[in-house]
Amino acid sequence: MFLKLFRKSDAVPSETELLAQYRQTGDLRILGQLYEPNMEMLYAVCYKYLTSEDAAKDAVMQVFEELVNKARTHEISNWKSWLHSVAKNYCLMQLRSRKEFVDAQRMESEDRLHLVEEAPEEPLPLKELDDCLKKLNREQQQTVSLFFLQEKSYRQIVEETGYELNQVKSYLQNGRRNLKLCMEAQVERFP
């Protein structure tokens, strides 16, 4: 009987108990106890998606930071499975933002190449570009300025403006097209 009591007090709390303690206290050491045994599995998941050791290591740390709030607010019935899903979703978001960044760079390079091919030998003054930018509607003007002039990402523009991601993409696409048409008209007016 004495040994049973002694063993019970040394028993390691279950994931469910640790999770309940973390939700009550917000103690990051408890979250660390939950997280640490799963770090290898999380690294493997992140490496599978991100295909870079450094990116996978960074992702493992970023996932932990996301858990600080998520673990306190989400209903979690299976910690390991839920953790796997959080890591996978984090990596997919990283890939999606990279794709948007690469797509944006590609589009910007194509636009620059296109403008270089069609531009007169002497560049247009910045005043014409500024005039054309002012002719765009407010949303297009704002997103084009944020994306190209301030070099903000789609995500940053969404956060700053409150527009939906699809709206941002549409405003950028239409704004770029309208800006290009305006600039072409400027070139024709001032050969």
Rank of each mutant, 00 (worst) to 15 (best):
E40D: 14
N166Q: 15
Y90H: 07
R96A: 01
D131V: 10
S81T: 07
M61T: 07
T161C: 01
L165R: 13
F147W: 08
T143W: 02
L3D: 14
A56M: 07
Q186G: 05
Y35N: 03
L67K: 03
L28M: 05
P120D: 12
Y154R: 15
T73Y: 08
R177H: 12
Y49V: 06
T143M: 04
E184I: 00
E159A: 15
R112C: 09
P120V: 09
Y49K: 04
E66H: 07
I30P: 03
L133S: 04
Q24A: 12
L18K: 01
T16F: 01
K152Q: 08
A20H: 05
E159D: 13
A87V: 02
K127Q: 03
L115E: 11
K57C: 07
L149F: 09
D27W: 09
L113H: 12
R7G: 11
N78K: 11
A55C: 08
L92D: 05
Y49I: 06
L83I: 01
E188N: 12
V86P: 04
A71K: 02
F2K: 15
L129E: 04
R106D: 10
R138P: 10
V187P: 04
V86T: 03
A56Q: 04
L133H: 02
S97W: 11
R98M: 12
Q62V: 03
K134M: 14
C132S: 00
G26D: 09
T161F: 00
E17N: 02
E128S: 08
E110M: 12
L124G: 07
C46W: 06
N69G: 14
V63A: 00
S77K: 09
K88Q: 01
L126Y: 11
T25S: 09
F64Q: 00
G162V: 03
V168D: 03
E100C: 11
F101C: 12
L31A: 03
P125T: 05
G162C: 05
T16K: 10
G175H: 04
P125W: 06
E184W: 01
E66T: 08
H114G: 10
E122Q: 13
L42I: 03
K8G: 11
F6G: 11
R7P: 09
Q140S: 04
L67Q: 02
K135T: 15
Y47L: 04
Y22T: 00
T51Q: 13
N137K: 08
E110K: 14
L42Y: 03
L115K: 08
P123K: 02
L18F: 06
E75F: 14
H114Q: 14
